[in-house]
Amino acid sequence: MIDWKLQVVVSIGMLFYFFVLIYFLKKKQLTTKYALLWIFAGVVMFVMVLFPQILTFFAGIFGFDVPANMLFAVIFFCIFVLLIFLTSVATKLNDRVTKLTQSVALLEKRVRELEQQTASDKKEEETV
């Protein structure tokens, strides 16, 4: 049903995918937490490539005309869920940056007033 040439091409693509993943992990541009997500996705995709019968089987059960349609549907669904997750991560990060900024600003005020206090204390000592 699925052309073996296609399987080979996609397998090479998957290997490239894993190399990119390891590269990002090495460069610390991906925390292990999120890397796990991508590793899991990669493993699932690799299994699909090696055993396309799985896809055909489930596509038949759910009533898809063509197995490819189910593949695309699943991928799109996953992407949407992932995007929602990412926007929530962005929100959380934004909140933390806000708190940090506020903390820094209030600290700046305290330091500035301390400096002014020390400076005026010194001036008083000199004039005495």
Partner: peptide, 14 residues
């Protein structure tokens, strides 16, 4: 499970 994968990933990338 998470720790195991994280440790393996760490070892591979360092």
């Amino acid at each position: 499970i998470k720790v195991s994968i994280a440790l393996a990933a760490y070892r591979i990338t360092h």
